[in-house]
């Protein structure tokens, strides 16, 4: 499965701004906390959700690799 943004549920205030900016509509509020929909394959990792989150509850981290290294890290675990 493709790498997804990381949601820190304890920091989410449920403001819903990330849901409003998510172009592929893969974010929803569940119990007033933002979550992904069941099958969020449409996420293009645009990082807009991270940009608008005022509490830092959504993170879109990047690996930085050289072209020759890319093949080794493609399937690294999502820690």
């Amino acid at each position: 499965m493709a790498r997804m943004p990381i949601i820190c549920h304890e920091q989410c205030t449920g403001c819903g701004v990330c849901i409003a900016v998510c172009a592929p509509h893969i974010l929803v509020l569940r119990n007033n906390i933002v979550s992904f929909i069941e099958e969020p394959q449409e996420c293009n990792y645009c990082a807009q959700c991270e940009a608008v989150c005022s509490t830092g509850a959504i993170l879109c981290p990047y690996e930085i690799v050289t072209a020759s290294t890319a093949k080794y890290t493609e399937h690294a675990p999502n820690l």
């Binding site: 991270e50 981290p61 990047y62 690996e63 930085i64 290294t69 080794y72 690294a76």
Partner: peptide
């Protein structure tokens, strides 16, 4: 910063995964 935090091929071959921390644009 990109040069400083890029995984080297030797590191990646050794661990088969990124050794360097992943960074958000905010970080």
């Amino acid at each position: 910063l990109l040069l400083q935090y890029a995984d080297t091929e030797a590191d990646s071959q050794k661990k088969m995964a990124s050794l360097t921390p992943r960074l958000t644009q905010y970080e």
